[in-house]
Nucleic acid binder design. Sequence first.
DNA 1: AAATAAGACAACCGCTCTGCT
DNA 2: CAGCAGAGCGGTTGTCTTATT
Length: 361
Amino acid sequence: MGRAPCCDKNGLKKGPWTPEEDQKLIDYIQKHGYGNWRTLPKNAGLQRCGKSCRLRWTNYLRPDIKRGRFSFEEEETIIQLHSILGNKWSAIAARLPGRTDNEIKNYWNTHIRKRLLRMGIDPVTHSPRLDLLDLSSLLNNSSFYNNTSQSSQMNMSRLLGMQPMVNPDLLKLATSLLSNQRQNLQDYQGNNDFTSNAQMQNNFNPMVQTNATRPCVPYFDEAQLMEPNFEQYPTSISNFDAQNFDQWQSSGLPMSDGLVNIQPTNFGYYGSDQTFMDPSLSDNSTFQSNISSHSNFMSYAPSVMSTPSSSPTHLNSGSNSTTYVNSSGTEDEPESYSSDMIKFEIPDFLDVNQFLLAQTN
DNA sequence: AAATAAGACAACCGCTCTGCT
DNA sequence: CAGCAGAGCGGTTGTCTTATT
């Protein structure tokens, strides 16, 4: 049985604040400071509950609040932090001076979330929505969760369409991760009625957890992000390079959720364009860490703001199967950036046209 | 011009956490 | 340790504004 709402008491006003009420609250706090919110309204002569006063002050009247549109950088920061922290709005707000958790939450729900959805990106997982590409069923049908590591490797490489290029070590690592995740899945399913597709993608889908489709965000431990001294960690994810990754690993700091980024050079949230040598290859060919440019990995740039302006949509055109999706659809938001373009690399064996046809029928 | 729908955001509700007794 | 109150958080609702028909 919960406590009765503080505003249940008779005579306490609810709803929008009037300028007079605002002024009373401001005057009182300027004189006496804030503190005991329960007694504050009475002392300030307000017919409001303390909770309402606190909310009004912290979300609206506080002098250090920055009003107005979110800037490009702020939006970028919100997306990046949300990919790490999830709906921890207060933690996100702590990294955005002058913005309140409520404001960020509202902005997320009304702007960013919708934009990501339009782009085919799951706003919860920050990964491409597999329910759109129906990759999950494809994974199941291809015996992706096969028991033998060898066949898992084969399936994975086949799925990713990169068999000739992949580093076997990476594949091995991914396979062992798969194995762990499969175990987790079994454990989890044993205890839960587990039906949410989004959760499924978030927690167990190997396509999501490998760097191929993850938004290339280093896996900060949440507690570290909560630390006030955030500067010691790379605030710009794209600056988090291989060296940082090595330091990160050697520091012994935990990877959250048991997840590991397979390719440390691909930490750029935008998808960096660095290359590294694949020691497993006898010749001098390089393995593009920016998978989208060479292999058939599917990659995407959640940070769509940085992409150049509009290009025509073309699907599955050409051997490289580079697919541009103008996610903005019919609605072009005037704010912040010039285009909502994202770039997908679709494996050859996925017939996107067929898929789109099926979706429209 | 009026009615309606959609969008945006302020405010509320219920729950949890924390500190005090 | 339990109970209580204050404070904070995240999800949801309500209200106002703007766009569309």
